[in-house]
Amino acid sequence: MSENLKIIEIEVLRYHPESDREPHLEVYKVPFTDDMSVLQGAQYIKDNFDGSLTFRWSCRMAICGSCGMMINGIPKLSCETFLRDYHPNRIRIEALAHFPIEKDLVVDLSGFIEKLESIQPYIIPKEPRSLEQGEYLQSPQQFNDYIQFTSCINCTLCYAACPQFGLNPDFIGPAAIALLHRYNMDSRDGAAEERMELVASEEGVFNCSAVGYCSVVCPKHVDPANAVNINKTNAAKDYFLRFLSPKGGSK
């Protein structure tokens, strides 16, 4: 071992659904260098101590959104969190909070995927356009209205941060509402009214109690809390003004 190699204790939440009744913690002593991320720490454990340790990862550069985990209780991407910032203290890594654990650090995201589908995350044009009419034009201002909300990488850190999602797993939640807002704000899209049914529903925006932690943990600065709160105002307007609207608002 070279001189600059330090040792950090990594406490890992382990859970094997076929043999464990409940999750438990195991500690590993991992040698590390200053450039090693928490993800690399987990990879070191898998390569050297226990090949059965299970976690998701892909890009190693905060783009794919796969490697989210609770690091000392805070939802973070493990690829952009460094072991040197925790040394000499012990570091604890656990599966993302509020999700069912599948195995070790891997959580079941099927509920989240269903929510993503439910918001209709695609452009539903205001009016159909033929090829002859050419492309949809969009001004830089119109582009700016929604670009921030396109940055989401579906890492679900905001769900692990959201106390209301923790209490009510039916809540559509921060990331899905931010993406819903992204399509509503797109000048090419005309389905905001259709999506309102979901926004204004009991699973919708009013589950949020404006804690704002989702926006704090977001690694892409999407600011889902802002999207949720803008849509509270929209849903309240829809609630009170639907009787005045010629189409009667959403149901």
Binding site: Q120, A200, S201, E202, A235, A236
Partner: peptide
């Protein structure tokens, strides 16, 4: 879109 969605009455309370 999910079916069977129930509109929330929260806007009344949220408005107040």
């Amino acid at each position: 879109m999910k079916s069977g969605l129930k509109r929330s009455n929260a806007p009344i309370f949220w408005g107040l």
